[in-house]
Design a protein around this nucleic acid. Structure first.
Lengths: 152, 152
DNA sequence: TTACCTGCAAAGGGTTTGCAGAGTC
DNA sequence: GACTCTGCAAACCCTTTGCAGGTAA
């Protein structure tokens, strides 16, 4: 699927969701959706606000928080807490399932994909009689680059 | 090891840490250590503050935050972020390694122990050239009790 | 037209900071 | 006695809320 089709698809999914829930299809909501899917990686409310303002499309923080909630509920993005009390978000639609390594030395956030985790998750769900909806896995430590730069 | 010996051991470890770092051994610091290890499960600054105040040992929030940082650095407690922007802590000294399930329906936090995770962690560390120091794993979903209480 | 949404600004709540006095070493 | 730590209160910052005006349906 090329990028344009992908965007149309996103809009379609979000529209479906808004219709289903009886929410209005306002231009702000689609502008925010578009902005989020235009950049890679993690973002937070502040960075989103600034990047939209930069493009002369200023929306209030209240609207950002409101729309983010809708995107979370429609499973187009997910929420992260990277231990610093600033909430981060990430688009998940049509992205490979992945988890994160966080370097406590340089702050780098590194994605990785390990299918074994999925199996373990299912095992735990069975064992604990728990219905999984999503997970949040972070490994903390020192990344390759920082290890190299430390004196022996 | 009985409880009293365990407490003495904790004090010893914390004392060693304070000495090593050149921090002072104030009564507040040991009172906070004692309070934290007197209760089970997770706590946050507010609950810690209140439970100490309850015992007529009031310490300021500033001192709590200060001491918590020291306890984190000495690896006696760990920090959690349960997605609600309230930082939670948990003692880890002499506790079995475990991770958490979080019920998004009733808010329950359920501990579990799955040794397979440890192996996966080591595999990822090798694969990604990453030196793990600690991990933060949360599975979200619906717990047993909430599943039962939902109408079919 | 009506109900919901947006924008603004103020309130809220957890965390951090600055400063004076107290206490450790 | 010097210097760090504590306590207090204010500052800080992200997030939420209340309200008036605007707009999708």
């Amino acid at each position: 699927m090329n990028q344009e089709n992908s965007r149309e698809n996103l809009k379609y999914i979000f529209t479906q969701y808004l219709d289903k829930k009886g929410h209005r299809k306002t231009p702000e909501r689609f502008a925010i959706l578009d902005e989020i899917f235009s950049f890679q990686g993690h973002f937070n409310i502040k960075s989103l606000y600034l990047s939209m303002k930069d493009k002369n499309y200023t929306v209030s923080r209240a609207t950002l928080y409101n729309t983010i909630d809708l995107l979370l509920e429609s499973n187009l993005i997910i929420k992260h807490q990277f231990r610093n009390n600033i909430t981060c978000y990430e688009k998940i639609f049509e992205c490979a399932r992945h988890d994160h390594l966080i370097c406590t030395s340089c702050g780098a956030v590194i994605e990785f994909n390990e299918p074994e985790i999925q199996k373990t998750e299912e095992k735990i769900a069975r064992m604990m009689n728990f219905t999984m909806t999503h997970r949040s896995i972070y490994f903390y430590g020192i990344c390759e680059n920082c290890l190299i730069s430390v004196c022996p």
